[in-house]
Design a protein around this nucleic acid. Structure first.
Lengths: 203, 203
DNA sequence: GTCTATAGAAGGATAGAC
DNA sequence: GTCTATCCTTCTATAGAC
């Protein structure tokens, strides 16, 4: 594969990423992707054969990118409170830079759950909760939080961070009518969400 | 409009609701809707003229249905804690019966935010926060919660209820690998979420 | 009001020249 | 590896008979 090939394939992949995230699998047009990449339709098929294969490549890249953002929660050596603050600060910042990714991922997974299955198979979730519980055993026992509750807490944290972006179309409309700006709102949310969760755990 | 007309139009509308929620606007096919309704394609156009008009009718119905479910939060005469418990119990129960609605609504709004704009225009949000704040002034002041914080709290509650359904494709995969069932998880969540929010507010 | 048949356009994919 | 031209299928929408 020459240096030039690499460039063309990348151009196509980047253009496809833009168009698929913007329009979804069903709404995206191969012609539109070709135009964005500055090449012709036939080349798309030369490099990726079918629309579905091109989409799968894009989808997998995005899914990995998003999951990777959750990783620091499991291996950092911060205490529980610092870790919660770290998570909301970093995660919301990432989504501010990529506001359309949550909606894209959630929608495409619901349309075709099989796509995410093989990615999840590489992960041992039982072990993740165990590891997390051991890391913060002292604090969690002090607050009377069992290991079984961790999934509920984690989903709640993901929800508080991701949902405003997934619901952006509605939330922006609501904030607009109150004279508030979405990005300022999300800036505030970094600390609000952290305080909220920490208070909830402390009781 | 005869009694028979009403029936056909309703059959079409119901079939369209099923197919649009399942496949989305771009993925849905008029032929598929006709098959579900047990009539032929031409009749769809006779009653609704275009695919887009048919979709708009379905979308508007669903959006109203969902927003209506939030209404009791604003006019019930329960105290704050009881209202929070009421909300999660009722709202999650509604979504358990309609698990695909959140993903559908969020996705279609993000694809075309204009669709929701006119529905939001009928609502005076500033007044809603004011009303809510007055209703629970005593409790909110005791917990040192300002009126400006209400939108963050409300979005957090919506997130905790809605997000697991919007992310169902992923969450179900995760729970599966842990030997847990989605519906049992959501049953637990009705009380977990209420406790979580109440604790967070009380500090 | 309901059907069959078909127009007309659009989209994914490929053949073949360079 | 890249392009133009085109095939073939699918889809929305309409015409016209009953």
């Amino acid at each position: 594969m020459s240096e030039n090939d690499k460039l063309t394939e990348e151009k196509i992949f980047d253009a496809a990423t833009d168009v698929f995230v913007e329009k979804g699998l069903d709404g995206a047009r191969m012609q539109d992707i070709a135009d964005h990449a500055g090449i012709n339709k036939a080349l798309l098929h030369y490099y990726f054969r079918t629309k579905d294969k091109l989409f799968s490549a894009v989808f997998e890249m995005i899914a990995k990118k998003i999951f990777k953002k959750f990783a620091p929660v499991f291996d950092d050596d911060l205490n529980l409170e610092a870790k919660i603050r770290f998570f909301f600060r970093e995660h919301i910042s990432f989504l501010q830079a990529n506001p359309r990714l949550p909606g894209f991922l959630l929608n495409e997974v619901n349309r075709n759950p099989a796509r995410i299955k093989k990615l999840l198979n590489n992960i041992d979730f039982n072990n993740i909760w165990l590891q997390l519980y051991e890391q913060h055993k002292n604090e969690l026992q002090k607050y009377n939080i069992s290991q079984e509750t961790l999934p509920q807490i984690m989903i709640s944290m993901a929800a508080m961070s991701v949902f405003p972006f997934a619901a952006r179309g509605i939330l922006e409309g609501v904030l607009d009518k109150m004279g508030l700006d979405f990005n300022e709102y999300m800036e505030e949310r970094k600390t609000f969400a952290a305080d909220f969760v920490i208070n909830a755990l402390k009781k």
